[in-house]
Simulated assay, not measured.
Amino acid sequence: MISEDKITAVVPAAGVGRRMGATLPKQYLMLAGKTVLEHTLERLLSHQALERIIVAIGPEDTHFPTLSLAHEPRISWVPGGAERADSVLNALRQVTSDFVLVHDAARPCLARADLDALLAAGRQPDGAILACRVRDTMKRGDGQGGIDRTVPRDELWHALTPQCFPTVPLCQALEQALNSGVAITDEASAMEWAGFRPRLVEGRSDNIKITRPEDLALAAFFLQHILESET
Rank of each mutant, 00 (worst) to 15 (best):
M1L: 11
I2T: 15
S3H: 14
I7R: 04
T8R: 01
A9C: 15
V10D: 03
V10K: 06
V11W: 07
V11P: 00
V16T: 12
R18S: 12
R18D: 08
G21Y: 02
A22F: 08
L24V: 11
K26R: 15
L31W: 07
G33S: 13
T35A: 05
V36Q: 06
L37G: 06
H39Y: 05
H39C: 03
R43Q: 14
L45H: 08
S46C: 07
L50K: 02
R52M: 01
I53V: 15
G58A: 15
T66V: 05
H71E: 00
H71I: 03
P73G: 07
P73L: 06
R74D: 05
R74F: 01
I75V: 13
G80Y: 02
G80E: 07
G81L: 02
A82L: 10
V88D: 04
L89M: 11
N90C: 06
N90H: 13
Q94I: 00
V95M: 02
V102D: 00
V102C: 08
A105V: 01
A106T: 15
P108V: 06
L110G: 13
R112E: 10
D114I: 09
L118A: 07
L119I: 15
A121N: 10
A128C: 07
A131M: 04
A131F: 10
C132R: 11
C132K: 09
D136H: 15
T137S: 12
G145Y: 10
I147F: 13
R149S: 14
R149H: 14
R149D: 11
P152S: 08
L156G: 09
L156F: 14
L156W: 13
H158W: 15
P162M: 09
Q163T: 14
Q163I: 06
C164S: 07
F165E: 08
P166D: 09
T167A: 13
V168F: 12
V168G: 01
L170R: 07
C171A: 15
Q172I: 11
Q176M: 08
A177T: 06
S180A: 15
E187M: 15
A190M: 08
M191A: 01
G195W: 10
R197I: 13
R197C: 14
V201Y: 02
E202G: 06
G203T: 00
R204M: 03
R204N: 12
S205N: 07
S205P: 09
I210C: 03
I210D: 08
T211P: 04
T211W: 06
R212S: 08
E214K: 12
D215T: 01
L218S: 04
L218A: 12
F221Q: 12
F222G: 02
Q224T: 12
Q224M: 03
H225R: 15
I226L: 13
